[in-house]
Amino acid sequence: MTAEATAGTVVRTQPQIQSELMKSRVAAAMWFLVPMLVALAIVAGWPLLRTIYFSLTNTSLNNLYGGDFVGFKNYLSWTTLKSGRTVFSGLLVDPAWWNAVGNTLRFAVISVTLETVIGMIVALVLNAEFKGRGIVRAAILIPWAIPTIVSAKMWSWMLNDQFGIINDLFLNLGIISQKVAWTATADTAMTAVLIVDIWKTTPFMALLILAGLQMVPKDVYEAAKIDGVHPVKVFFKVTLPLVRPAVMVAVIFRLLDAMRIFDLIYVLTPNSKATKTMSVISRENLFDFDKFAYGSAQSTLLFLMIAVMTGLYIWLGKVRFDGGDR
């Protein structure tokens, strides 16, 4: 108490100097931020607004500036026939769109769930001490380093119905009785996509979970060992609750990423109705089918869905935005 009081009287001019300094620092900070904010506004903000605007017009790809404002017609419109029957049309009653929504959600939920479970197993293995751990960690980084397009091509060769090694292996092991056209059959196309995505993304999950596992103090395990607690019980009662925050962050990031999947599906199972996702169908309408405005409406809806999910995450996760004490 007294120490503070004396300090206050002795250096009375200090706050004044500091506030001058603060002012100039804040001014400099503003100038540092302007280029980045301008860049983001041009490449993200403005294009997003234009996409939303296009979704409310009848713009076509060949005549970007010739579209007329049509309101929400691309989303939903209706006409009443002479017979008195009302016919609805537009995105919200389009079965192809809802098929894509279903595919995207199914893909996102299944892939992220399996990646989390397998990632947890891999992370637990890497957290144990054994000879050759460095080699394993290096090995699991390889799928992560390979470009998505390349891994899609590698796997579509391995999954090839005639000459693929997967069919050969499964036939030899007796898992299948005849060759399967993995990527071309509607029943197996989604499985093929899931296999490749899980192969490619589990390493990322495993490394994030591993980082969480390494924060758990070692003496927790030692105490459990001395008390003779079964390892499985230790995992569920001690390890899992402690790494849950780290796992949750990873799950949310992956979920948001999986919602917008495009490249893997575009290359691995082109034109398959069973795997077509929201991003794939939007791009198709935008640039292949000359339904620019309709495609814009689809991408706007996907954006809204992801925006709501991100909002929920920021709200529920209480992400730290304060940036420390400086």
Binding site: M259, R260, S282, S299, T300, T310, G323
Partner: peptide
């Protein structure tokens, strides 16, 4: 500052398809 950081995080979560039409125009 918090608002700017939040915007940056939000942009990094952007689905690229959402800006595709607008970016094409730009």
């Amino acid at each position: 500052r918090g608002l700017i950081l939040m915007t940056i995080l939000a942009v990094s979560m952007f689905p690229q398809i959402a800006v595709l039409a607008g970016l094409f125009e730009v």
